[in-house]
Amino acid sequence: MKLLPTTPLEEVEQRGVSLFKKTFDSDPQIVAHAPGRVNLIGEHTDYNEGFVLPLALEMQTVIVGKKNGKDTCRVASEAFEGLVEFKPSKDLKPGDPLWSNYIKGVVVNFLRNGYDVPAFDAVVVSEVPVGGGVSSSASLEVAFATFIEAIGHHHLEPSKKALFGQAAEHEFANMPCGIMDQLISECAMRDCALLIDCRSLAFEPVEMKDPNTCILVCNSNVKHQLSGSEYPLRKQQCKDALTVLQSLDPKITSLRDASLEQLNEVKDRMSEVAYRRARHVISENDRTLEAAKYLRKNEYEKAGKLMTESHFSLKNDYEVSCKELDFLVDLAMGVPGVYGSRMTGGGFGGCTVTLLKISSLSSLLDKFEQEYEKHTGITATAFVTRPGSGASYKKLE
Results as ranks from 00 to 15, higher is better:
Lys223Met: 08
Phe20Arg: 01
Val106Ile: 07
Cys192His: 15
Thr253Cys: 06
Thr376Leu: 14
Arg234Ser: 03
Lys223Ser: 15
Ile252Gly: 10
Arg199Cys: 03
Arg190Gly: 08
Ser389Pro: 09
Ala122Met: 04
Asp191Trp: 12
His44Tyr: 05
Lys251Val: 06
Ala278Arg: 04
Gly178Asn: 05
Ser126Gly: 12
Val281Trp: 08
Lys305Arg: 10
Cys322Ile: 08
Ser254Asn: 14
Gly131Arg: 06
Glu13Cys: 13
Asp91Glu: 10
Glu324Ser: 04
Leu194Trp: 06
Ile252Leu: 15
Glu373Gln: 15
Gly114Ile: 12
Pro5Ala: 09
Met59His: 10
Ala241Met: 08
Glu157Val: 13
Glu319Asn: 07
Val142Pro: 09
Ala391Asp: 01
Tyr115Ser: 04
Glu169Asp: 07
Val107Gly: 00
Ala291Thr: 10
Ser200Asn: 11
Ser135Pro: 12
Ala122Asn: 02
Lys90Pro: 12
Gln225Asp: 10
Cys351Met: 06
Pro336His: 04
Leu355Met: 11
Leu314Tyr: 04
Arg15Gln: 13
Ser137Gly: 06
Arg199Val: 08
Phe51Ala: 00
Leu92Met: 12
Glu309Val: 05
Gly152Pro: 01
Ile179Phe: 00
Leu396Lys: 10
Glu13Leu: 09
Thr61Val: 02
Ser363Gly: 15
Ala202Pro: 10
Glu127Thr: 15
Gly347Asp: 02
Leu356Pro: 06
Ser363Gln: 08
Thr45Ala: 12
Lys2Val: 06
Val38Tyr: 00
Leu57Asp: 03
Tyr294Pro: 09
Val329Glu: 04
Lys357His: 15
Val266Met: 12
Ser321Asp: 07
Asp91Ser: 11
Tyr47Asp: 01
Lys395Thr: 08
Leu111Cys: 10
Tyr294Arg: 08
Val338Glu: 05
Cys238Glu: 07
Thr379Gly: 11
Ile184Gln: 15
Asn109Trp: 11
Asp71Phe: 07
Asp286Phe: 05
Ile179Arg: 00
His154Val: 04
Val64His: 15
Thr6Asp: 07
Met59Arg: 04
Phe110Arg: 01
Leu140Glu: 00
Met59Thr: 03
Cys192Asn: 14
Ile184Phe: 02
Leu9Pro: 02
Asn221Tyr: 11
Tyr47Pro: 00
Ile252Gln: 07
Lys239Glu: 14
Phe368Trp: 11
Pro54Trp: 04
Ser227Gln: 12
Thr45Ser: 09
Lys21Cys: 09
Leu195His: 01
Asn48Ala: 12
Glu299Asn: 14
Glu230Gln: 12
Pro118Leu: 11
His154Phe: 14
Arg342Gln: 14
Phe24Asp: 03
Glu149Ile: 04
Asn219Asp: 06
Glu290Gly: 06
Lys323Glu: 05
Glu127Asp: 13
Gly42Thr: 14
Ser321Glu: 10
Phe51Lys: 02
Arg256Tyr: 12
Leu306Thr: 00
Ala34Leu: 10
Ala188Asp: 09
Thr45Ile: 08
Ser136Lys: 11
Val320His: 03
Val273Cys: 06
Ser159Phe: 02
Ser136Trp: 01
Gly16Cys: 07
Leu55Asn: 01
Leu194Ser: 04
Asn298Glu: 15
Thr376Val: 15
Gly36Glu: 03
Gly114Val: 15
Lys323Met: 14
Val84Met: 00
Val338Ala: 02
Leu201Lys: 13
Ala167His: 02
Val75His: 01
Arg279Asp: 13
His375Thr: 05
Glu169Ala: 05
Tyr339Gly: 02
Ser360Trp: 03
Val31His: 12
Ile179His: 02
Asn212Arg: 13
